[in-house]
Design a protein around this nucleic acid. Structure first.
Length: 447
RNA sequence: GUGGGUGUAGCUCAGUUGGCAGAGCGCCAGAUUGUGGUUCUGGAAGUCGCGGGUUCGACUCCCGUCACUCACCCCA
């Protein structure tokens, strides 16, 4: 048997990578504009980090984490989510001494041992951001704004924001008592899962999909109506902020979150075309987590967006650019002059294709057309003897003979560059990439 | 972890009561020896997911297994 990818993982092939890169580029530019800086934390951490932060009772930690021991017997885990590592890093590097808030973003792979399904794989990828150190609802609104804008900028439409607050420690525990009181006599009517939740995580009963549970929850108290004055005010101010940005939202009183660390305002961005896994991005406030993890009391808010889910919503849309050149030649093996031109084009940052085996001109042009080349250069014996080259515009099917020495300069003038200098560098601050790749102008091959 | 559906060419899929493995797209070559997207002709390409069983004979029936997929669960 040949070796295949393990269950729940997949190769992202070159034909799909352009979409990933476009999404990553758009996200980076957006996050940097909002003054977030990228952080890269290890893929594996001490298992205890996630047990403490995400919560020992959550399925993520109790059933779905990839845990293993290294040769010294240390218990390690592949990271199942991003916030825990960032909080660890924030504390470990004394980031509370920096100007607050500390605003960080990340993108990369995460791992959960789940049954694969539409929009759910064992290795999956998220883009996320955290604003740590300031308890201002403006940041809550900013986080919601960003998590809406990333998919929106990629051209994903019909997104809905679901908003709620699960309150602070005080009002939530009061509410949970009221909820349990309401459900006490109805517990037999709830589904088996909710019977378990009644003792482990009662808030999760609120978002059960079973009709018998919805029935019994519906006439009970909601967390939204039972917030303390402070939490209520925060939710309302967040609403005001995102309304002013023109974001359509809906208060969803039964929206809760699965991870233990959330407090206060929480949200989900959903899309109906995703099937059961309809959450594109989600997040909220976690004002107690940093203290709980051994840091100073520090408020924070963040979000994570599922890359695969956004890619699913992008469907067949292609983000491949058509700014390449095909160098066709007729005498094999490749003449020294052809090789020099090829190298000169590439050194000038021009994406250049050619053939490395004997092919007819017809075949070479066919390849050029198929791979969506903007221009072809044709360099045969005739041209070589005259010191010229034929420049063929593949869009208009017109061509002209130009001086070989001018070829690079002429093409450079007519094609957007792809040289490393032209790309936005993650190491330089403030470079705008819009002149390099405008997603809206990217061309679908064949269109 | 539970339940349903599906695995046949690179891709999308046909394949009748068990009797020689098929199509479309794609790929390669040719139809003027130096010019692409159309058309025509030809060609290559398969352990019928894998392993067992029943049978003279299995892509087809039975059992197991793996994978994909949808839903539950969980969650981005």
């Amino acid at each position: 048997m040949v070796v295949k990818t393990v269950r729940g993982t997949s190769d992202i092939l070159p034909s799909d990578v352009s979409t990933w890169q476009a999404l990553e580029l758009v996200s980076r530019n957006l996050l940097e504009a909002y003054d977030y800086r990228e952080i890269r934390t290890p893929i594996f951490e001490q298992a205890g980090l996630f047990q403490k932060s995400v919560g020992e009772c959550t399925d993520i930690v109790s059933k779905e984490m990839y845990i293993f021991s290294d040769k010294k017997g240390r218990e390690l885990a592949l990271r199942p989510e991003g916030t825990a590592s960032i909080v660890r890093s924030f504390i470990e590097h004394n980031m509370h001494t920096q100007t607050l808030p500390v605003k960080l973003y990340y993108m990369g792979p995460f791992f959960r041992y789940e049954r694969p399904q539409a929009g759910r794989t064992r290795q999956f990828h998220q883009i996320g951001a955290e604003a740590i150190g300031i308890e201002d609802v403006t940041l809550d609104a900013e986080i919601i704004d960003i998590s809406m804008q990333i998919p929106s900028k990629m051209g994903i439409k019909n997104l809905k924001v679901m908003l709620n607050s699960i309150g602070c420690k005080e009002c939530r525990s009061k509410y949970v008592k009221r909820l349990l009181g309401h459900l006490k006599n109805r517990i037999k009517k709830l589904c088996a899962d909710c019977n378990r939740r009644y003792s482990t995580n009662p808030l999760r009963i609120l978002d059960c999909k079973k009709s018998e549970c919805i029935q019994n929850v519906k006439d009970g108290p909601t967390i939204t109506e039972n917030l303390c004055a402070k939490c209520r005010n925060k939710l309302e101010t967040t609403e005001k902020h995102i309304s002013s940005l023109g974001i359509n939202y809906q208060i969803q009183p039964y929206l809760v979150r699965g991870l233990d660390y959330y407090t206060g305002v929480i949200f989900e961005i959903i899309h109906s075309q995703l099937g059961a896994q309809n959450v594109v991005a989600a997040g909220g406030r976690y004002d107690n987590l940093i203290e709980q993890m051994g840091g100073k009391p520090t408020p924070a808010v963040g979000f994570a967006a599922g890359i695969e889910r956004m890619i699913m919503l992008l469907g067949d849309r292609s983000f491949q650019s058509n700014n390449s050149v095909y160098l066709a030649y007729l005498d094999f093996p490749m003449h020294e002059k052809v090789f020099e031109l090829l190298s000169a084009l590439r050194k000038n940052g021009i994406h250049t294709k050619t053939t490395y085996q004997e092919k007819t001109l017809k075949n070479q042009l066919k390849t050029a057309a198929k791979s969506n080349c903007r221009f072809s250069l044709i360099l045969g014996t005739n041209e070589l003897s005259k010191g010229t080259v034929i420049l063929r515009d593949m869009k208009t099917s017109t061509q002209e003979e130009i001086k070989l020495d001018n070829a690079v300069a002429i093409i450079k003038k007519n094609i957007p560059l792809v040289s490393p200098e032209a790309k936005p560098s993650p190491f330089k601050v403030g470079i705008k990439a819009d002149h390099f790749v405008d997603v809206n102008k990217m061309i679908k091959p064949g269109s």
